[in-house]
Design a protein around this nucleic acid. Structure first.
Lengths: 324, 324
DNA sequence: ACACTTATACTCATGTTGAGTACAACTGAA
DNA sequence: TTCAGTTGTACTCAACATGAGTATAAGTGT
């Protein structure tokens, strides 16, 4: 008689799109898991079967297609999570669960979904991450809640954790760093301000404390989403990934909206145009988009043939001249 | 009677250090694997046991300590490899192998090893990656070998693959991009120029073709090393990881040598100093190192308290001013 | 014709980067 | 002890990138 499986390999994906000016996340309803409220949404997920699936990437593509009806464009591996008791399903006796997460980008033109799948706004899960209309007031509430937490700590830890708070949320003389999404989520989780913290312990959240810190997700999927959002924000700095989210031709405003939606930052329109045009990543088509509400905008196309990617500035560019 | 295991979770680590001005890799001798020549070196590796190991990171730390006697400093997850028939051990009937690779950095002061472990020069495995003394002549040989391969391809593929060659190796009007280590290895592998290509197929390499394209490693560990070297080169651009490889105090030349060793690029000494000093990452100690062979150099210390990390330049910095 | 909207071009101060010159402070050999 | 050689450190300068604007173009609807 076979054992119950000791180890389950679970694949899931942070599937992102941008519609209008909002970042969208593909979610499904996790059905039939004990202890998981059925109002929660989850990332598309499914098992990896070593006998059936030749590669992880093909498995995640098929899993998402099966669960949501849509198919993925750009796909990259995100992270492998395996900490014990990380996934609430482990407590339900399902054995150890190792989750391999992927990040996927989908063009806005392919947004049909099936069954229980639906598109949510990313910032429903991380309301403090959207700085496009300036610093969210929510940050002030977070700061004060975190300082309350600080006061409960042993005084030896306080200075370090205080600095961590400042770095994560851009307080004091520290600037906001958009890509620290995971660090912020983990800090809020440790500070017991995230609903999942209480759910993971089988308790109901202290409503007074978790003011409005985003919708919870099933399992540890909000943590995985934070990893994914951080990753795309980081990569956007040096790789032209925004084009994976746009149709064949687009105006520069659409391109800017995609970058803004994902980075959560507002950009200077004229300088964005200068940056994009000088990068050589786009070529004008001569056609115009007339439904802008003002002067018609030129339609551009992504130039896949760009050989010289922008060399990332920074320490790597401090080269010596060649020669003996 | 239990099945033979269907799936093995295998952890391994790219463990890097820098001694003098050379990047070093921790390697072990893989013993008792059928079909693996015992002259080949491997990355430190070992199984992940879901019943025993609470986290992946702890498992890899213990595995490396057990195999090599040394202990790791900075550790980050690199990638999870699971393609079918990727690992030659699968053909030996060991079942499906899923490998989770880590990247680790070790200070030069902790370089003792035990048993069969030893430190190798990274560039023994990738001789074309070291551009510190200018463009390696080997690149010309690689170019011509790749063009021979190109001529064998169906003509429909040639233009695309030719462009890929140019981008990977910085030919034509394309610049050398240090961090594309994996892309270069995979191109050489596909072009049948890498010894592992032949070993994976049970054949002996065509000696005439694989001129001197680095030492082979056991399993697919050279591919994993390529992933790791690419990762550290990429991260060095925007994170102060070099300090993880240095003792408490160091001269700016030592710091520069660490960055150069890993990036494979030579840097301009005066500008490197300016960059580092302005970044605020280091503080002078007032002490001097006298054994430099010339003027004594000041010893610096890494300032862990740097709040404001350098904001990575690029598209993410094109922000709008705040306000309505 | 007009106010309003969005697109696009251009300017300007400031900062960053590549490349170099100049000089300082040690060593060892003549 | 002088001097060539070596390495460390300070400073300069042109070219380019970036943040923040102003100005103008070309549509919309009333």
């Amino acid at each position: 008689m076979p054992d119950t499986p000791q180890l389950i390999i679970d694949l899931n994906a942070v599937v992102l799109a941008v519609t209008d000016d909002q970042p969208r996340l593909l979610t499904v309803a996790p059905e039939g898991y004990p202890g998981i409220s059925d109002t929660l949404r989850a990332l598309p997920f499914g098992p990896f079967d070593p006998r059936r699936d030749r590669t992880l990437e093909r498995c995640i593509r098929e899993t998402v297609t099966r669960q949501t009806g849509g198919s993925l464009g750009y796909v990259e591996q995100l992270y492998t999570f395996a900490d014990k008791e990380r996934d609430p399903r482990e407590q339900a006796g399902l054995g150890r669960i190792l989750s391999i997460a992927y990040l996927a980008l989908v063009r806005e033109s392919v947004l049909e979904t099936a069954d229980d799948a639906s598109w949510a706004n990313c910032y429903d899960y991380f309301p403090w991450e959207d700085w496009r209309r300036g610093r969210p007031v929510l940050i002030d509430e977070i700061e004060s809640a975190l300082h309350d937490w600080l006061d409960e700590l042993p005084s030896a830890d306080r200075a370090g954790q205080r600095e961590r708070i400042d770095i994560c949320f851009g307080l004091g003389n520290v600037g906001w760093d958009a890509y620290k999404v995971l660090e912020r989520y983990e800090l809020l989780y440790e500070a017991q301000l995230i609903a999942e913290y209480w759910a993971d312990r089988g308790q109901s959240p202290e409503a007074a404390i978790c003011a409005d810190l985003g919708e919870p997700m099933a399992f540890d999927h909000r943590r995985i989403l934070a990893t994914g959002l951080g990753r795309i924000r980081g990569k956007l700095r040096y790789r032209p990934l925004a084009f994976e989210l746009l149709p064949d031709t687009f105006t520069l405003l659409r391109l800017q909206q995609v970058v803004e939606a994902l980075s959560g930052l507002q950009m200077h329109k004229q300088n964005f145009r200068r940056f994009v045009e000088r990068s050589g990543l786009v070529a004008g088509t001569g056609q115009r988009e007339t439904s802008t509400g003002g002067r018609p905008a030129e339609l551009f196309r992504f130039r896949r043939a760009v050989l010289r990617e922008r060399r990332a500035p920074g320490v790597a560019t401090l080269q010596s001249p060649r020669g003996p």
